[in-house]
Amino acid sequence: MTIYEIEVTTDTGGKYPLSDYEGKVMLIVNTATKCGFTPQFEELEALFQKHKDEGFVVLGFPSNQFKQELDSGHAAAEKCRLDYGVTFPMHELTNVNGAHEHELFTYLKDHSKGFLGNSIKWNFTKFLVDRQGHVVERYASKDKPSSFEDDIIQYLKK
């Protein structure tokens, strides 16, 4: 299985395969609107705006597994749009750990072993996926998106 075979659901309920982003560099983030790291939405949006024309996309996946998210993905996405100007794709509430975790996060964790362990410890864990669909970096919650812009640029050039 490749990452492109995985289907995800938008905050409004539309389903699509990640193959829609084949050939792009993806930054996949588990998000929460009531978390201390929530201001990272501004940096995520700034990176998206700066590099989207080069083939970069940020994908936000709200999760309430750490009890810091609203009741639905749509409510979370609306808050992100209103409070932080987010325009990148947001998705339904997603489990990132445990028996009911979404297959995307199983895939991301399985393919980023050696980076930060096999569980997601907190909101705003970030996974960088190259144009070929390989998980190439994993960043901790505390890692500000602007701190790894050079990595994004490196993979955009490949």
Rank of each mutant, 00 (worst) to 15 (best):
M1P: 13
M1W: 13
T2Y: 11
I3G: 06
I6H: 09
E7S: 15
V8R: 07
V8I: 14
T9C: 09
D11F: 15
T12Y: 14
T12F: 11
K15M: 11
P17E: 00
P17A: 05
P17V: 00
L18W: 07
Y21P: 05
E22L: 05
G23F: 10
L27C: 07
L27K: 00
N30T: 08
A32L: 11
A32H: 06
K34P: 00
F37H: 09
F37Y: 14
Q40S: 03
E42C: 12
E43N: 09
E45Y: 08
A46G: 10
A46W: 02
L47I: 06
F48G: 00
Q49D: 15
Q49M: 14
K50V: 15
K50P: 13
H51L: 07
H51W: 05
H51C: 03
K52C: 06
D53F: 05
G60S: 05
F61R: 06
P62Q: 11
S63V: 02
N64M: 03
N64R: 10
F66C: 02
Q68S: 05
Q68H: 06
E69L: 04
E69S: 08
E69P: 09
H74C: 05
A75H: 12
A76Q: 04
A77E: 01
E78D: 10
K79V: 09
R81H: 13
D83F: 13
Y84S: 08
Y84C: 07
G85T: 09
T87V: 12
F88C: 07
F88G: 00
P89K: 15
M90E: 11
H91Y: 11
E92Y: 11
L93K: 11
T94A: 04
N95D: 13
N97Q: 04
G98W: 09
G98R: 08
G98K: 09
H100D: 14
H100R: 14
H102Y: 11
E103S: 13
L104D: 02
F105Y: 09
F105W: 13
T106P: 03
D110P: 06
S112P: 02
S112Q: 04
K113C: 08
G114P: 13
G114Q: 05
F115D: 04
N118W: 12
N118T: 12
I120W: 06
I120R: 01
N123M: 06
N123D: 08
N123P: 01
N123C: 05
K126I: 04
K126H: 07
L128N: 03
L128R: 08
D130M: 12
R131Q: 01
Q132M: 15
Q132I: 09
Q132W: 14
V135P: 00
V136M: 05
Y139M: 08
S141D: 03
S141R: 12
K142V: 12
K142M: 13
P145W: 14
S146T: 15
S147L: 14
S147K: 15
F148T: 04
F148E: 00
D150R: 13
D150K: 13
D150L: 14
D151E: 13
D151W: 08
I153N: 01
Q154C: 11
L156D: 00
L156Y: 06
K158H: 11
K158D: 05
